[in-house]
Simulated scan of single mutants.
Amino acid sequence: MGVDKVKKMVPSLHGKVSDEEWEERVNLAACYQLVAHYGMTDLIFTHISARVPGEDNQFLINPYGLFFDEITASSLIKVDIDGNVLDETPFKINPAGYTIHSAVHGARHDVACVLHTHTTAGMAVSAQKQGLLPLTQNSLMFYNCLAYHGYEGIALDLDERERLVRDLGDSIAMILRNHGLLTVGGTVSEAFRRIYYLEKSCEAQIKALAGGSEIIIPPREVCEHAVAQFQSFGSRTTLEWPGLLRILDRKGSNYRD
Rank of each mutant, 00 (worst) to 15 (best):
N27A: 14
H37W: 14
F67N: 09
T99R: 02
L86H: 07
Y32W: 08
C113F: 05
D82I: 10
F67E: 12
V114D: 00
S74P: 06
V114P: 00
C31H: 00
S75G: 14
H101I: 01
I100D: 00
V85N: 05
A29N: 05
S75V: 10
T46M: 04
E24G: 05
P63R: 07
I48T: 13
G54H: 11
L28P: 09
E70F: 13
D56H: 11
G54Y: 10
I44N: 06
K78H: 03
Y98W: 06
G106A: 11
D110H: 10
I77K: 02
D87L: 09
D80S: 13
G54W: 11
L86W: 09
I77E: 04
D69Q: 14
N62V: 10
D56L: 14
L76R: 02
Q58M: 15
L86I: 12
G54C: 10
N84G: 08
K92H: 07
I93N: 02
N94R: 00
H47E: 05
S49E: 02
A36S: 03
A50V: 10
K92A: 06
I81C: 00
L86R: 06
R25Q: 13
D87A: 09
E23G: 08
V104E: 04
L86K: 10
G97H: 00
D69N: 15
P53Q: 11
I44V: 15
G39Q: 03
A29G: 11
Y38I: 13
V114C: 03
R51K: 15
M40I: 04
I44W: 04
V104A: 07
V35D: 01
A30S: 07
D69C: 10
L66Q: 12
T99E: 06
L76K: 03
V114Y: 03
V111P: 01
F68S: 08
D42P: 07
R25C: 05
G39F: 08
I81Y: 01
I61Y: 02
L86M: 09
S49R: 04
F91G: 05
D87S: 14
F59L: 12
M40N: 00
A30H: 01
Y64W: 14
F91D: 09
F59A: 05
E23V: 10
Y64R: 10
A103P: 05
I100G: 00
A50Q: 11
D80C: 12
C31Q: 02
H47L: 04
T46I: 04
K92D: 08
D80A: 13
Q58W: 01
D42H: 13
S75H: 09
A96V: 02
P63E: 06
A103M: 10
L76T: 04
F68Y: 15
P95H: 12
Y64V: 12
F68N: 08
D56F: 11
P90A: 12
T41L: 04
G106F: 02
Y64T: 11
G65D: 13
P90H: 14
T72H: 03
K92W: 05
I77R: 02
V26C: 09
N57M: 05
S49D: 03
M40Q: 05
L43S: 12
C31P: 01
V26A: 04
I100S: 01
H37N: 15
Y98R: 00
I61A: 03
H37M: 14
I77S: 06
Q58K: 15
E70S: 15
T89P: 07
C113V: 10
A73S: 13
I48G: 08
P53E: 12
E23F: 04
